[in-house]
């Protein structure tokens, strides 16, 4: 039972991660490989603040989100000097820099040793120590983030994001502020990515840089792509499938290290297949279909 609860919690964390990236990469078309960096910023901010200064969860969460959002503004102003495939390379570079800081800045992050002993979340005296209570908290936050993101995507701002990813110059000619909208969507994605980071740090009670590598970024992006780019429910389902996949493979009797590799091979294949699908204009058709509903 504990095991199933653990998997459900992990699924929910990845649902928030991938849905926050859906805004950035799906709606405004800024394919980012730096998302695990923001996830890590959230986790490290909360871990450092609560271990070293004893700040409560209700304070560390907004601080982590603000810090992550602030770094997202910085990152996007740099990365938006390029477009398209170069943008992906730059975000990849930023991810490597972020990992390098987490791994090497011994004084702040304790380097590869990680930060142990992160206390459990406590809100107004209630300690979320049992798995089931933590699951409910995570579920509440997931629904909260989902509702916000769904409202954003249905709002005029969401339509600007879709418009600029389809035709940037045309959107500009309508008097929309394309550059600001791009930065805003990148920042939103970064801010919401901090939430699962904070939750993860308190849940596992120990973090080290290996949870926030480039592979993690690729994994989150794969969830978004396999989920159908502009589809919040699709990302949620894809997250569930991809998190359960290695467990299912292990259940079938595969050793766990082979299962991990097999999962990556399967989502690598899925990425290639999805790209073939998108190359025939799947993306815009999908969007038209949604609008007609």
């Amino acid at each position: 039972m504990e095991y199933i609860l653990h998997i459900v919690i992990m699924i929910l964390l990845y649902v928030i991660l991938s849905q926050s990236l859906t805004i950035t990469s799906g709606y405004s078309g800024l394919i980012s490989l730096a998302h695990a960096g923001f996830y890590g910023i959230g986790a490290y901010t909360s871990a450092i603040l609560s271990v070293n200064y004893g700040l409560p969860f209700l304070l560390t969460l907004p601080i982590a989100m603000l810090l992550s959002g602030f770094s997202a503004v910085l990152v996007s102003t740099i990365a938006l000097r390029t477009v398209d495939d170069y943008f992906i390379i730059i975000t990849l570079g930023i991810q490597v820099v972020a990992f390098s800081i987490m791994n090497n800045w011994m004084d702040l992050t304790n380097g590869p040793l990680g930060i142990p002993g992160i206390p459990a979340i406590s809100i107004l005296g209630f300690e979320f120590t049992s798995k089931i209570s933590f699951l409910l908290l995570t579920l509440a936050l997931t629904i909260f983030v989902f509702l916000i993101l769904r409202n954003i995507t249905k709002s005029p701002f969401g339509r600007i994001l879709i418009a600029l990813s389809e035709d940037e110059i045309f959107t500009k000619s309508l008097g929309k502020r394309v550059y600001q909208a791009k930065i805003a969507s990148f920042t939103l994605g970064g801010m919401f990515a901090a939430i699962p980071g904070v939750l993860y740090a308190h849940y596992i009670s120990y973090i080290d840089p290996t949870s926030f590598t480039i592979d993690e970024s690729i994994f989150i992006l794969s969830i978004v792509i396999i989920g159908g780019m502009r589809n919040l429910w699709g990302s949620a389902i894809a997250a569930a499938v991809l998190v359960i996949l290695p467990e299912a493979l292990r259940f079938l009797g595969m050793p766990s290290n082979i299962a991990a590799n097999m999962r990556q091979i399967i989502y690598g294949l899925a990425l290639v297949i999805m790209m073939f699908k998108y190359s025939k204009g799947f993306l815009s058709k999908n969007y038209v279909g949604q609008e007609n509903k």
Binding site: I31, I225, Q264, I265, L269, L271, V272
Partner: peptide, 19 residues
Amino acid sequence: TPKWIVLIASLGVYIIFQN
């Protein structure tokens, strides 16, 4: 195909090979 799609596809190919 747009360039970024090819880039992501190549990333997928890379993941398959690496694993």
